[in-house]
Computed example of a mutant assay.
Amino acid sequence: MGVSSKKALILFARDPELGKVKTRLQSSLDAETTYRLYLRILADSVAKVCAVEGVDRFIGVYPSHQSGFFDAVVASGRAQTFPQEGDDLGMRMRHAFEHRFAEGYETVVIIGSDSPTLPAAYIRQALDSDRDAMLGPSADGGYYLIGMNRRVTDVFEGVRWGSGHVLTETLARLKAAEAGLTLLPVWYDVDRPEDLRFLKTHLEYLEHSGIGAYSETLRFLQQLNWETVA
Rank of each mutant, 00 (worst) to 15 (best):
A179C: 01
L221E: 05
D128L: 14
G210F: 02
Y214G: 04
R94G: 12
R24G: 00
E216G: 08
L174F: 05
V46K: 09
S45F: 02
T217W: 01
S113K: 00
S76V: 07
L37C: 00
G112P: 05
S27P: 02
V61C: 07
A96P: 01
T33P: 01
M148I: 04
A8N: 06
E216N: 13
R24L: 13
G68K: 09
I146S: 09
I110T: 01
S115T: 15
G212V: 01
F58T: 04
E85V: 15
R57L: 02
S113F: 00
Q125R: 15
N225W: 03
D87S: 14
R151A: 15
G68Q: 09
S64E: 15
V152H: 10
K7I: 03
V49L: 13
V229L: 10
L171C: 09
I110R: 06
K20Q: 11
L29H: 00
G54E: 04
G86N: 07
Y143D: 08
G77H: 06
F12C: 12
T33W: 03
H202Q: 13
Q26K: 10
A126V: 01
L29K: 07
L196Q: 02
T170N: 02
I123A: 05
M134L: 09
D191T: 13
Y105A: 05
Y214W: 12
D56G: 03
A179D: 10
F70T: 06
A172T: 01
T34Y: 01
V52G: 09
Y38M: 05
D87V: 14
Q222P: 01
V108A: 02
V190F: 04
R57W: 04
Q80Y: 05
R219I: 07
H202F: 07
R14M: 13
M148L: 14
V61I: 14
I111F: 08
F58S: 03
L206I: 06
E169N: 00
A47H: 09
C50T: 12
Y143C: 03
D88S: 09
T23Y: 00
G104H: 09
G54A: 08
D114A: 14
T81L: 15
L183F: 03
N225L: 06
K20L: 12
D130V: 11
Y35I: 05
D15L: 02
K175S: 13
Y35G: 06
E178H: 15
V74Y: 06
V61L: 08
E204T: 12
R124A: 13
H65S: 15
G2R: 12
R192M: 12
A139C: 11
V46Q: 00
L221F: 00
Q222D: 14
K20N: 12
G141K: 05
G77L: 06
I10L: 14
R40E: 10
T34L: 03
D154L: 08
E216L: 12
E157T: 11
V229S: 04
G68E: 05
I146A: 02
Y144N: 09
A177I: 08
G60E: 10
V109Q: 07
Y214K: 04
D195E: 08
H202A: 10
E207R: 13
S138R: 07
M148Y: 03
L37Q: 03
G2T: 11
L29R: 02
D128A: 14
A72E: 15
P116W: 07
A139D: 15
L127T: 03
I123E: 00
V229G: 02
A177D: 11
R197W: 13
Y143L: 06
R150T: 11
R124W: 04
D44K: 00
